[in-house]
Every structure is written in structure tokens, then in C-alpha cells.
Design a protein around this nucleic acid. Structure first.
Lengths: 178, 178, 178, 178
DNA sequence: AATGAATGAGGGTTCATTCAT
DNA sequence: GATGAATGAACCCTCATTCAT
């Protein structure tokens, strides 16, 4: 069963390469296995990709939870957003090829991740560091959508990420009294 | 050729319908033509979709230029961003199905559009309405990436768009003197 | 669309050859076409076989109805059973390869055929030529099951058919008064 | 080898369950063994199924011989046919999944079984209880084919079996003198 | 010029069988 | 001797593209 890991490694690697086909055959070849073996090990392409993405996403969610426990919500948000973008940049192709597939584990982890970001935002709002005139859920959705987009922007540059974080956090800051 | 328009209309309509297959046959059926006619009229699926997307994007670019001529850069930016997001929301599926295709006309128009936004930003910056501590090109890229993402967010809601524009423009505002 | 007939002819021919694989590729090769063409013409293997079998079964059902109209029920039964067996013998493999497939047209025609046989039996019973101590539906089922089996027996011989009809009809005759 | 029995038990059980896949893996899982073990124990799927069916058929043949020794041929025939049908009904799927396979042991046992039925028929004919105007071999073939079909009829009902035996035996009875 | 028809390439999946452990 | 793992072959199906009509 160590081949499960071989397959997941191969799928992960391909997920990080933009423009790749991401067929079962491609994954199998990358793993040094036959296509049938790959299918058999996971029971279908969807399940395979679900497992691969979930394996990638798991540590990210954990990191969000850890940051929430270790530091202030606002600081957690700053740090986590930067890391999240770095992660998504590194796995550039994740979202591209996955539309229309049934990925229950991935969906669940994404919900966890959204929840963690919402917790960060709520805490920061209570600490007076995030404006209170925006709906929390909408704000979380906004961050989720835009962070992903920044990570996947072509070409991706550190400057873009810096600019994003600057604009976002300044835009989220409480409005100064007039 | 009148059929070119029929095909483009059909492709445009299908581009706006999420979850549709967007095969040559589907487009042809929608256009009331045979599949071979569709291919022959454009020389391939990529060229067809390129033409369809370009035809959609053309008026958008023109609108950006018009706004620049009619009003202040900052106001043009505000108005255009909202309209751009509405446009992309309406043609939700555009980006989904187009990854990996070769679309030269679309690429060129996107460059035009980016240029127009950059002009808006430059003008607004010179008017003192946008912060000057961010690289113009990077800022434009940031807007391009995030506006697209907000438009394609699931579920799309007017609240999300409002929150996006609020946070973005506040985040882009010049920093108050301390 | 004359290729629909080509495909149906090929499928019919293969249906008559015992031991053949009856794959889409086999059918296509027999028809002198590509496999994709065959699938495209019918929308799937099941639909193709359904059409082929239905095309075979249609005249058989019609013949049953004609016999009912032309002659006495008992005579119709005698004649039809012999012809039915001859038909099934000629298309030996029909039933073998079709278990588990979804064949709506075939199923409907089989129901028609069963209905016709039941009409023959009912009429013959009322004419006093078939015993009245057996349930009509059960008797029809009995004939259907056994006629098919006789037709598919290996090796099939005219003697077997003769013996079957003799035994069946004698066995179905009204019991003589003691 | 004790595993041979495990495998045969599993195969036998699956043979009795209609709608089951009857793959090597399914059989192995049912037997609590690995698929490779199953194949190695018999040298192939055909041999495995041949052994399984033969093991089922053995007692049936023996029962036929016992009945011939214990009672009159006609009574043996009546009893055996009912039991044979019950047996085949219970192992409904036997014939469905076995077409096209090479099963020498099964074939041999079927020949034995046919021989026993022929003996029953011959005896009954000599006792004046079965008509003499039909070829013995053909009559045996007729019974073999139809009994199997009745057993496999869908839906199987006791009424159908009763009707079959009634019609068959009445049809096989000597013709009354005119 | 238009198209119905055809298809080659490619995708996912199943399964009996083989082999290293 | 037993098996988890691997796989080649085979199957059904989709689709952009080509071609004879």
C-alpha cells in the first residue's frame, strides 16, 4: 500500500504543473505504474484526485488552527493569508482541472478552511482591527475568492502578493473617525 | 458570412450557461447548423471560441475607453469595475472552459483591457485618489485577478461585489497622514 | 442514415452466430464501419442491440397477430409455435448475450408476443381444444420458456422441434373423460 | 487442500445468487482468500467454475441413479424431474454466466445425467407408461432442454413447475386407443 | 457552400492473470 | 504456499476534425 503514496505523490506533482493533462494515464506514468493500478488503488479518478488534494489541504487547515491558537486573530490572519497564497501558488493547477469533479474530502476541508478564516476575522473584528460594517460571511468569501485568484495569477510575483495583502488589510481596517 | 454570426451567437449563449458541455456539436446545434460548418467557418474550435470571447470582450474594452474619456479616472474605475464584474458574472463559464486553449484575439483584448485599467489607475493616482506606494502594473494585475475571481465566486451575490469594491477602493485610497 | 441499417444488419448477423463476442468493435467491423460511428448512430450499445433485436422481433409479433386473424386460435398456435422456434433457432444467440442489458423496445415486443400467445391459448381453450385446468398465464409462460429452450437446444434438430410440439400439444389437450 | 473447498463453497454460493458479478475477486473475497490463491488453486477461472458446477452436479447425477435403483422408472422420472428443476432453480445463475466457457467436468456430468434420464424414459416406455412413437434420444433432449428452461424462467413459480410436469407427462403418456 | 456521416485518438474502467514478497 | 499488488488487454464512450455528397 505504499503505492498509494506513490500515486498521491505523482498526482500532487502534476497538480503543481500548469498545463498538464492530469489523465489517469499521465498520473500512472509519473508514478511508474500502470493505469489500472492507479484506478484500482483509489477506485476511480475522482477519488484519487480527492485524496491528493485533501492530503495537500490537510496541513493548511491545521496550520490555520494552529495560528489561531498561538497568536492574535489579526496576526493569524496576516500570516495565514500569506502562507495560503504561497501554498496555492505552489500548487497552481489545483483548481483548474478540478471543476465538475466530485471531491467530498476536498470540499469538507475547504469548509474547514473557510471556518478558520472566519474565526480569524471575527476575532480581529472584536479586537477592533477589522471594520465592523461588512458581513462576516461575505468578507470571508471575499478573502477566499481573491486569495485564490492572487495565487493563481499569471505571472505570479511576490510583489503582487504584497500588494494584495496591503490593499486587503488596509481595506479591511476600521474606518477612521471623520 | 452570416453563419459566422450565427455560430458566434450560439457560442456566446453557451458560454453564459454554466455546466454546459461546449462541444462543437452543441454549438452547432444551438446555431442551427451542422458541426462541420462550424468548424469550417472558423478553422477549429479554438479559433471559434477565440472569436466568440473576443466579440464579447470588445465592447467591454470600448466601454473602458469611453469611461476614461467621459469622466474622471477614479469615477471611471469605480464604474468600470462594477460593470466588468457584472459582465464576467453574466458570462460565468468563460474562463472555466477555456484553460489551455490558444486564444490570440482574446489575449490581445485582455491586454487592451488591462491597459485601460492601468490608465484609470494612473489618472486616479495623479488626482490623489489612489495611493502612490504601489507599483502601477502590480496594482492593475491585482485588480484584474481579483475582479475576475469575485465575478466567478460561487455563489455570486451582489453583497460580495459591494464588499469587494468597498474593500478594494478603501484599500487603494491614499494613506491618511498620521 | 442508411448506415443504421448496415449496423443493424451486422448486429443481426452476429446475433445469429453463437460464440461471438458481440462487442461494439465486432459489430462495427462487420458493418465495415468504425466503432465510434456505430455508437454515434444509436447512442450506446444497449440502444443498438435493442434496435437490432426489436427489428427482428417486430415481424414475429406481426405474424402472430396475422395468424390470429386468419385462422382458428388452435391452428394459429400450432403454426406460430413452429415458426417461432424456427425464428429463434435462426437467431440462436439472441438471448445469450443480452442478459443484464436495458432493452426497452425488445421488452415491449416480448410482452406483445406473450399477449398474442395468450390470446391463441384462450381462444383454443374456448374452442375446447386446450385443457381448462391450467392457469392461462402460467400456460403462456410455460410455452414461452420451453419454446425458447427448444429453439436454443444444442444440437438443434427438426426432430426435436417435432417432438416438442407433439408432446406440448398432446399435453395441452383436454383430458379424455375416464 | 482445504482452500479448494473454501473456494468451491464460495463459488457455489455466488452461483446461486442472481445478479452477482462472479469475478475471481468476488469469489476470493467470499472465500476469505486472495484472488491469486483462487486462481492458483484451480489454474484459471474456467477450471474453478467447472469444479464448482461439477461438485453441484455430482449429487444430482447420483440421485438419478439412486432413484432408478429404488423405484420404477416412471416414478423415478417424475420424482427426479421435480428435484432437478428445484435444483436448477436454486442455482439459478449457473447457466447464465457460463456460456462460452470450457467446462469439461461439467459437460461429462451432464452427459451422465442425460444418460440417467434416458434410462428412466426407456424403462417407463417398456412399462407402457410412456409413448413409444418418439425417438428416445430426442425425448431425452427435449426433457433436458425444457426442464432447464422451466427452472430458469422468470419469475419462477411452483405453479409453473406443476404445469410443466403435468403437460410434459400427459404429453408423454401413450396415446389412448381410438 | 453546407453537411451528414465517419473516425482516430484518447479517456476511464474492469478483470483474469502474473509475480515479488 | 499464500497474497497484495500490478498490469495488459479489452470494453464502452466522447469529441474535434475530415470528407464525400
Amino acid at each position: 500500500m505504499r503505492n498509494r503514496d506513490l500515486v498521491l505523490d505523482a498526482a500532487t506533482a502534476l497538480l503543481a504543473e500548469p498545463g498538464v493533462s492530469l489523465t489517469v494515464e499521465t498520473i500512472a506514468k509519473r508514478a511508474g505504474l500502470g493505469a489500472a493500478t492507479v484506478v484500482r488503488a483509489f477506485g476511480g479518478k475522482d477519488a484519487l484526485l480527492d485524496a491528493a488534494v485533501a492530503r495537500l489541504l490537510g496541513p493548511v487547515v491545521q496550520r490555520a488552527r494552529d495560528l489561531l491558537a498561538e497568536t492574535t486573530p489579526y496576526q493569524a490572519l496576516r500570516t495565514f493569508l500569506r502562507e495560503l497564497i504561497a501554498f496555492q501558488t505552489a500548487h497552481h493547477a489545483i483548481h483548474d482541472q478540478l471543476t465538475g469533479l466530485d471531491l467530498p474530502a476536498t470540499t469538507a476541508l475547504r469548509a474547514d478552511l473557510v471556518g478558520a478564516v472566519e474565526d480569524m476575522l471575527d476575532g480581529a473584528r472584536q479586537d477592533g482591527l477589522v471594520r465592523a460594517d461588512l458581513d462576516p460571511a461575505v468578507t470571508t468569501a471575499l478573502i477566499g475568492a481573491t486569495a485564490l485568484a492572487v495565487a493563481r495569477a499569471e505571472p505570479s510575483s511576490p510583489d503582487l502578493v504584497d500588494a494584495y495583502l496591503t490593499v486587503l488589510l488596509d481595506g479591511l481596517a476600521p474606518r477612521p473617525a471623520l
